[in-house]
Design a protein around this nucleic acid. Sequence first.
DNA 1: TATTGTTATACTCTATAACTATA
DNA 2: TATAGTTATAGAGTATAACAATA
Lengths: 169, 169
Amino acid sequence: MKRAESLDSTKREAGAIEMDTIVGAAGGQIGLDVLPELLGYNVRRAQIELWRDFGATVSEGEVRPGLFSLLLLVGANPGIAQIDLANQLSVDKASIVALVDRLEEAGWVQRKRSTEDRRRQEIFTTPAGAKKLAQLKREVQEHDAKYCKLFTDDELHQFLEFLQRIYRH
Amino acid sequence: MKRAESLDSTKREAGAIEMDTIVGAAGGQIGLDVLPELLGYNVRRAQIELWRDFGATVSEGEVRPGLFSLLLLVGANPGIAQIDLANQLSVDKASIVALVDRLEEAGWVQRKRSTEDRRRQEIFTTPAGAKKLAQLKREVQEHDAKYCKLFTDDELHQFLEFLQRIYRH
DNA sequence: TATTGTTATACTCTATAACTATA
DNA sequence: TATAGTTATAGAGTATAACAATA
């Protein structure tokens, strides 16, 4: 256990850059001037935290963020085509197929070949899907609210604007 | 192309909630009061944007954020054990094995069985690994700076604090 | 008994390429 | 020719379970 203990901050020698240190193993140190000041690293860590809580909270992990946002889009846009789902979520159309397959196998959506343009598959929620979506929305709101609570209204507003600046720039 | 055009905001009827609409297909609409106000959705979108630019910018996509942060940790903590890498990055120890394998196969790190505790594999960067890491750091800084530029110093400082509030809460 | 590393396995998410049918 | 959907395939990333060596 010697090595594990040397990683413990309580055993660091005087003079070590304590505040800025994440890990101090075998004398090495990594400062806050490296990873934690990178925007990308912080966004990644926040996303991982939110992803995990989503999985632990919503629908017992059965539905994750990707599938949820897909179902949400279908629910809000009855008859939306897969290509539009792909464009909305910025993923390849091929990647949408398997996701819609899963929603269909779960009995939450139905594909209907468009009569106007027979290349298009129109996606609709089933009654069961609409019900599931309503339940998911409640659970997701609850999950999301947990984190929104960490901020004042003004802070949250600004936070969302910062995030949007990144993906809409 | 009729259906695609019906998705275009320019063809929406008067009275439609234009500002709040992402997609309007088959008469359906999804408002900004759904997805884009969810903290999780915004973090996810920002992360995807950063991830993509990272892949397009850094090391010609050869090294992605996960592998980079692993190599960074090893570089800053010579002799760190795999279990400590796992704990630092909040992933299972089993997941670390394949990542270290790849770093080792690339010739950037070396495993050395600890003499103090023979269960532990100490990870060190090779000279080639140190060189690669230095180059990666420059490229990552450059990539990251692109997005930092979207913010004033004060904004960036606040933004990072917001993100940390989520994953350190 | 507990810990470290490992292997086997599986699942999510995503991408590319090639194909079908439709436009 | 171009578009929408599909299939096949691959790779990154992660998790769990079971195991060996070591503590």
